[in-house]
């Protein structure tokens, strides 16, 4: 008897909840209207392709014949047979762990410093620091510097100073490849995150600084930590996601400076490996498996970083 009572009560509750949900959906008509155009396009051009790519990762697909299902084979091959993948995974992790946090800090630091300047000078400084992201010839500059003969700028300087006896082939020497990739990547770091921080600093309420000064904030560093950063937490989150997506996907810098394949795969990253299979060997199934692993790696680190960001200003 008691049991049936319980059950009917439960049913009533479910019905109530459903009714409430339906009521909420109906009440939010305007919201759904507003998100509809974006999410319809988003579904077709972003979600669907990702779902299909994950699907391909369980197939053998050479883009000429129909894909054939192979189960976990691609993943097993990745982790057990593909030595170059392991090397590129290691390189990617090194690059991401070093350049990720440092780039992020640099974006924040330079955005914050530029924010101290006024008017035209400030727009000009923003341009100068954003220039590597907009000029399209950034690697050309570094190729000049790192050229392996004695006319390369770096060799030239070191020879003149007597530090070197003969020119070093920087990008053809295994031990130098990764360090230089890190340097160039850091130099390139002021991109999306940087500009969004510049914009974010604009929206910090100026009166908060006055209030903070009254509350005993003494210098600009305290002001940064207790006032500015907490006020721009949404931008910090956005910047972190952008940083993760770019740090784990480092490839262009390696392709342009170290070449593909780089000497002894010293500059191979997960994405150069992916590009190799996806655009050269046309093994889409295998490339998709690499992309899926990379995706999981990014999702994991995003979880971690967002947790850390919640502590800002405490």
């Amino acid at each position: 008897m008691a049991d049936t009572n319980d059950r009917s009560e439960h049913a009533l509750e479910v019905a109530k909840k459903q009714g409430k949900l339906w009521y909420q959906i109906k009440r939010s008509k305007a919201s759904y209207f507003m998100i509809a155009p974006y999410f319809i396009l988003f579904f077709f051009f972003t979600v669907l392709p990702v779902v299909m790519a994950v699907g391909f990762s369980f197939t053998y697909y050479n883009m000429l014949e129909m894909p054939t299902f192979v189960g976990w084979k691609n993943y097993i091959k990745l982790f057990l047979e593909d030595d170059i993948f392991m090397k590129s995974l290691k390189n990617t992790l090194i690059l991401a762990v070093i350049t990720g946090p440092v780039s992020y800090m640099l974006c924040l630091l330079f955005a914050w410093i530029i924010n101290e300047f006024k008017g035209k000078l400030r727009a000009f400084l923003t341009l100068i620091f954003y220039a590597p992201s907009i000029c399209g010839n950034a690697y050309m500059v570094w190729n000049l510097i790192l050229t392996g003969d004695r006319y390369g700028y770096l060799n030239g300087i070191l020879l003149k100073l007597g530090i070197l006896d003969e020119a070093v082939q920087w990008m053809q020497t295994e031990k130098y490849v990764l360090p230089f990739l890190i340097v160039v990547q850091l130099w390139l770091s002021l991109g999306t995150g940087f500009l969004s921080f510049i914009a974010g600093l604009q929206t910090v309420d100026k009166s908060m600084y006055e209030a903070a000064a009254l509350d005993g904030v003494k210098n600009r560093w305290q002001e940064l930590w207790y006032v500015t950063l907490p006020a721009m937490k949404p931008q910090l989150r956005f910047g972190a996601v952008m940083q993760i997506t770019s740090s784990f996907a480092i490839a262009d810098v390696s392709l342009n400076l170290a070449g593909n394949p780089s000497v002894n795969y010293a500059g191979a990253t997960v994405v150069t490996h992916l590009l190799d299979y996806g655009t050269v060997r046309l093994e889409m199934g295998y490339a998709s498996a690499i992309a899926t692993i990379l995706f999981l790696l990014m999702v994991g680190s995003n979880q971690l970083i967002q947790k850390l960001l919640r502590r800002v200003g405490e």
Binding site: L48, P49, V50, A53, V241, T245
Partner: peptide
């Protein structure tokens, strides 16, 4: 945003 754009191009 975290899924590599290279492989979603084909689909």
């Amino acid at each position: 945003m975290m899924f590599s754009w290279t492989v979603t191009q084909t689909p």
